[in-house]
Design a protein around this nucleic acid. Structure first.
Lengths: 107, 107
DNA sequence: ATATGATACATCGTAATACAAGGTTTGTCA
DNA sequence: TGACAAACCTTGTATTACGATGTATCATAT
């Protein structure tokens, strides 16, 4: 299908969380689980490569900080990242509507 | 994430169409495009292997028929296929709700 | 008469994605 | 002290959808 349609795009979820506040990797995993009522149980082997990729692409920046005795790597969304987020949000909306249309399900 | 959650599952869309009536491959492609307002433009390189897999798994059966001068391979959903359809429909519903929950979007 | 494009099937190689499995360090609590 | 949670990471692997390409038949336009 249209590649952009792939809503497996975890980018969308991660970028959205970071658009609300800075977070570190492990926190993203737990936050996703809690907000989705445990539907999303993102694995670390999925998240960390994803964050590194987003950083390389300039959608997020990162810095390390020691907090509560732990060294954490915090991520902050960039202007570019916000642009992508808006676009992916729209793609998700379109995709979901299309699936529901095919299934004859109400939005 | 949860593997089952992957709504990239085109199986869902294809099985749903076949649950309404028998269809042949090429028809599925055009039907998906028309119902989704051209959001879904499934490629033949995607569909045919998918149908073969569904057949091997016993979710559909197939038979060839000459109609309108063309030899077509029609697919019919099986009981097993209907079971899977119901399950995937539920998974889609759950997945979409979870995404919307994370994004703070209304259903 | 012939060329083009739509119909209809198919396969093969490739890129992206998420995961499983494994590993390290530090802190907390029994 | 030992176990477990927090927090980061990498490598290999399976799945998925796609691009490219191929074949054959039929309709339509030139």
């Amino acid at each position: 299908m249209a590649r952009e349609a792939t809503p497996g795009g975890l980018d969308l979820l991660v970028l959205h969380l970071l658009s609300e506040r800075e977070m570190y990797g492990y926190e993203i995993v737990t936050e996703l689980a809690s907000r989705s009522n445990a539907v999303f149980q993102m694995k670390e082997g999925t998240l960390y490569p994803l964050l590194h990729r987003l950083e390389k692409e300039g959608a997020v920046t990162a810095y390390e900080e020691k907090k509560e005795g732990r060294t954490r790597r915090y991520y902050r969304i960039t202007r570019k990242g916000r642009g992508r987020l808006a676009q992916q949000r729209e793609e998700w909306r379109e995709y979901a509507a299309a699936v529901n249309a095919v299934l004859c399900m109400p939005g």
